[in-house]
């Protein structure tokens, strides 16, 4: 099968220098992540804070350079592109940020904000660009378009700003978009609206989509598949409904438990998983990175790192005892 985005053992480590003479150390934000994405497919990346979701997303759009692994985009290795080639990739892959208050330059009008990508990629003449910008505003339902185009970011609400950010991501007609917690900083009242808008646009334009989120509860409505990240690694990956209904990895189970369960009976059934510090990414735990917090951890979990394996059809889990949890 051919994928639009095919990620292999991607590693993004951040070098941290304490002084000129001391040895630098590394924050292993993304550590050997493999992931793939079909054309027009949406995959959600879920994990608690600091698990490396943003780092993964930014590496995929090449804002960060990985220190290892590969990103194959449409059959082409984009891992180490530079200059003109990188500019080409920047037209194909877009990112929508978490914070619409900082992601729009405050001194540009909405028109100019949307025009920038077109100018940079030398698309269209003035009249064509104008049409494209109005079209994009219409797509994200910011009307009347001419009035909206003349405004400045500070005149808009958070939801409206995020619509501008979405329009900006769409205006280059990309085939791949990373949306990094696109609604987590918005008022609860507009979150669902924006998510549905994103989903609609993603489907209409057949865009491959990585949707980064904390919110496992609603994820299934917006993505075909879900990948669970923990400490820079993918722990479990499967179709959305499959993960929500049959979570295998103890960490996924813990995450799901964090979702308010409608049936009070169910709440008692699930075993307590001790909370704990998210792991140190500088010197992560040996073996399975989840072992210090895992209620099922055995000796082997401390020594050997479990690989991501297909446990049932299209359901991948990185746990030594995955089969046991499957049976339960």
């Amino acid at each position: 099968m051919s994928y639009l985005v095919d990620v292999e053992k991607l590693r993004t480590w951040f070098e941290v220098k304490r002084g000129i003479f001391s040895k630098p150390y590394y924050i292993r934000a993304v550590d050997e992540v493999s992931l793939n994405l079909k054309r027009g497919e949406a995959i959600a990346v879920v994990g608690e804070s600091g698990s490396g979701k943003t780092s993964l997303g930014k590496t995929l759009v090449r804002l960060y350079k990985p220190i290892g692994g590969k990103i194959i985009f449409n059959g082409k290795d984009v891992t180490n592109l530079e200059g003109k080639d990188l500019l080409w990739y920047r037209r194909q892959a877009q990112i929508i940020y978490q914070d619409p208050f900082s992601s729009l330059p405050p001194f540009f009008s909405i028109f100019r904000i949307l025009e920038e990508p077109l100018l940079i990629h030398k698309i269209g003449n003035e009249r064509e660009r104008r049409e494209m910008i109005f079209e994009a505003l219409k797509n994200v339902k910011l009307t009347p378009v001419e009035l909206m185009a003349s405004k400045y970011p500070h005149m808009l609400s958070g939801g409206q700003r995020q619509r501008v950010a979405i329009a900006r991501a769409l205006i280059l007609k990309p085939s791949f978009i990373v949306a990094d917690e696109p609604v987590s900083m918005l008022d609860a009242s507009v979150r669902i609206e924006i998510l549905f808008l994103l989903r609609e646009l993603q489907k209409n334009y057949g865009i491959s989509f990585i949707y980064i989120t904390h919110d496992l509860a609603t994820t299934r409505y917006f993505s075909e598949r879900i990948a669970i990240m923990y400490a820079g690694k993918v722990m479990e990956e499967a179709l959305s409904d499959e993960i929500i209904e049959r979570p295998i990895h103890p960490y996924t189970q813990a995450l799901l438990r964090a979702i308010p369960e409608p049936d009070p009976e169910n709440r008692k059934v699930i075993k307590e998983i001790p909370p704990g510090e998210p792991p140190d990414l500088v010197s992560p735990p040996s073996g399975c990175r989840f072992h210090p917090r895992c209620p099922y951890a055995m000796e082997i979990c401390k020594k050997e790192e479990p690989q991501l394996r297909e446990i049932s059809q299209n359901h991948f889990v990185a746990c030594h005892f995955a089969e046991n949890f499957l049976k339960k």
Binding site: L63, L87, R91, I95, S103, P105, H121
Partner: peptide
């Protein structure tokens, strides 16, 4: 954020300095 965003849609360093840093 908008500086990194500009990089993400392809703005060159020069463009960022002239059009994004200066006005700010």
């Amino acid at each position: 954020g908008y500086i990194e965003a500009a990089t993400s849609y392809g703005a060159s360093d020069l463009r960022i300095v002239l059009f994004y840093l200066w006005p700010r």
